[in-house]
Amino acid sequence: MTLPVSGDNVSLHETNPTGVLFSTCLAKITMSIFFAKRLLTLIVTLIGASMVIFVVMEILPGDPALVILGINATDEMVALLTTELGLDRSAPVRYWDWISGLLVGEMGMSYAYKVPVWELVEGALWITVPLAIISITFSITLALVVGLYAAANHNKPADIGLMGFSQLGISIPNFWLAVLLIMFFAIELRWFPAGGFPGWDEGIFKSFKALLLPAIALATVVGAILARITRSAVLEVYREDYVRTARAKGLSQRATLWLHVLRNALIPVLTVTGIQFAGLLAGTVVVENVFHIPGLGSLVLKAINNRDTIVVENVVLLLAAMVITVNFIVDMLYAVIDPRLKAQDI
C-alpha cells in the first residue's frame, strides 16, 4: 500500500483538504497493518520454534530421572521418579502442559534442582542481557568511530591500517582474547577480577567491572565486523547521486558525511547489528565459561548435561523470543531510518 502520489500535473483532489485528511488516515492504517503483520509473524515464529525445541529435546538420548538418580538406581526408583516428574505422560500432553503453563507465566519446575525454572532463568538473564547490551554498545561505538574514520580516509594509510586491525579483530577467537585479557588486565595489572560475578546486590560498579572484560572479549569481534560493514556502507552511499547533490549545495565533505551519508549507510549496519546482537545473547556460552559467569549460556549447558529438559526448552525458547524481538525492533528501526519502508510492507 502506498500513499497517494500525484502526477506531475496538478490534480484536483490534492488541493482539497479532504484529500489531505484521507492521505494521513491511509498512512496511519498502513502503519497499523505493518505492526500487526510483524506481531503475527512474531507469534507464529515462536510457536514454530517451541515445537522444534520440544521435538529436539524428545529425540535427545538420556533420561532425566536416570541422570538424577545415578547409575546405581533400580528400575522401580527410576519409574517412580519418572512418574513424579510427569515424564511418563505422552509427548503431546507434555507439550501442551508446557505451552499452557507459559501462557499463564509458568515455566514449570527444574528436574535437577527442584526449583521453579524461572528462578534459574531470572538470575542468568540479569547477567547475560546486561553483558550483551554492554558488548553491543562497545561494538557499535567502535564500529562507528573506526568505520567512519576509515571511510573518510579511503585508501589512505589510516584506512588501510584500521582495516588491517579489523581483519585481526575478526580473526581472533573470543575465548582466546578472553584468556589474553585475563592474563594482562586481571593477573598482570590486577585492574579487573579474573572471573566470577558478585551479583548486582554487591553494587553496580563491582558487577559492571566483572562484566567489562567479557564484554570487551565479545565486542572485539562484533565491533570489527561492524566496522567493516560501516566503512563499506559509507563508501557505497558516497557514490550515490544525492551525495553529489549535497556537495553541489555547498555542504562540506564532513557535513555531507554526517547529514546525508550516515543515515543512509546505517541501514546495512543496523541489519548486521541485529544479527550480531542476537548472536551475543545466545552465543556468550564460551566466554561465560572462560570467566565463570553464571549467565544463560552456562545455565543451558549445565541443563543439557543434567538432561534437565524443561530448563533447556524454556531457555532456548526464551532466547528464540529475544532474537525475534531484536529482529522486530530492527525492522521497526528500518522504518524510522528509511521513510520509504513505511509505505511498503516489509
Partner: peptide
C-alpha cells in the same frame, strides 16, 4: 556552490536524499 553557482543533475529519481 549552491550559492553563486548551482547545478541540476540528470537523474531526479536518485538526486534527492531518500531519507
Amino acid at each position: 556552490r549552491g550559492n553563486r553557482m548551482a547545478m541540476i543533475f540528470q537523474e531526479p529519481m536518485t538526486s534527492l536524499n531518500p531519507v
